[in-house]
Computed example of a mutant assay.
Amino acid sequence: MPHQLTRPALPLAAAAALVGGVLVLGAPDHAGAAVPDTIPLKITNNSGRSEPVYVYDLGTQLSSGQQGWADANGGFHAWPAGGNPPTPAPDAAIAGPTPGQSKTIRIPLSGRIYFSYGQKLDFRLTTGGLVQPAVQNPSDPNRNILFNWSEYTLNDSGLWLNSTQVDMFSAPYAVGVQRSDGSVSSTGHLKSGGYNGFFNALRDRSDGWAGLIQTRSDGTVLRALSPLYGVETGALPASVMDDYVNRVWQKYTTSTLTVTPFADQPNTKYYGRVSGNVMNFTNASGAVVTSFQKPDADSVFGCHKLLDAPNDTVRGPISRTLCAGFNRSTLLVNPNQPDTSAAAFYQDAVTNQYARAVHAQMADGKAYAFAFDDVGNQESLVHDGDPRQAYLTLDPLS
């Protein structure tokens, strides 16, 4: 089945969509490109694992809009036509660095950089494009492969590169960018022992969160699914957020939730009050601008469905603020949102325990643990308008 993204873990500067199972990334066009068509990506294998590593650069060539893959030299190759049922995609694998070594490739696309250990990933093509791995599906051919990916946009405005746990927490890695002055910015490293610490945090709970963990028949821990996929597959109880959502709805029946969605527009405010099953938001004039039905866990974890966030200037910004507040459980303790104080996040007994564990194990506290984790600048993202080199560091699974 095609992989359906909840929300690409990319900056607001980048627009994204999933077309026929293909991740299509882009950003505003700018005349007079200051950024080369390709930049070097230095991949360092600090994983400590002995298996071969395979790397893939998949996505969309912004200059042509074509979907395809890139070779190690940055050469672009458009995907051939797919079929129904899906047909095997061309082998886009690049041999990665051996343990303790580095390898530099050139990246020309905007999309995803996959890496896998010990086995090549199985990509297929449908009539609509590339089928992304969807390991929440037990029959997905990549289900028993240890792999992960990073997402990026490269265009005339520079490079945006992030680590992501929006869909799953798996083989750890960090990303970085070298600026024109030679300095390097990086993010995504776990604390020492953070990989095992994350899984232990889920295992130590008795309320179903350990059900997110997937292991191979040989005992290898492969990943933890995001709670969105946990709910969708039944690995996590669908009622897991009900108590918190009900308390939020009760509170704002008699009080007002104030949302100031734009940090640079402090006078743009919306006011939420609950009436029955609906939270209505009004503007400063008292006119209702948008309304939300009481969300379920699926909507909260995916920031979609009942918390849909269109790319507009009103509903989308309010929805992303609500989504962050529900996942971080800040809506009861602070009637002014977004709450950007990380010390206040995940303190309620009912919260996104997956996101809580991810952030707790990050060396800098930054992560993309759910779709709108960039609210309040909590995301694991590097960006530079004049990048000289990008970095992908494969870290130990310990």
Rank of each mutant, 00 (worst) to 15 (best):
V240S: 10
V240C: 14
M241A: 11
M241I: 02
D243N: 13
N246H: 00
R247M: 05
W249N: 07
Q250L: 07
K251S: 10
Y252T: 03
T253C: 01
T254H: 10
T256N: 06
T258W: 00
P261F: 10
F262D: 09
D264P: 02
D264V: 11
K269F: 08
V274S: 07
T282C: 05
A284S: 15
A284P: 00
V288Y: 09
Q293R: 08
K294Q: 15
D296H: 09
A297Y: 02
D298M: 04
F301K: 00
G302P: 02
G302K: 00
C303F: 05
L306E: 08
L306D: 13
A309C: 08
R315P: 08
P317L: 13
L322F: 08
A324F: 06
G325K: 01
G325C: 10
N327M: 01
N327D: 09
N327W: 01
R328S: 04
R328H: 08
S329H: 05
L331T: 02
L332Q: 04
V333E: 15
N336C: 01
Q337Y: 04
D339E: 12
D339V: 13
D339G: 06
S341G: 07
A342R: 15
A342S: 15
A343S: 15
A343T: 15
A344G: 14
A344Q: 15
Y346K: 11
Y346L: 11
Q347N: 15
Q347C: 02
Q347V: 12
D348M: 10
A349C: 08
T351Y: 01
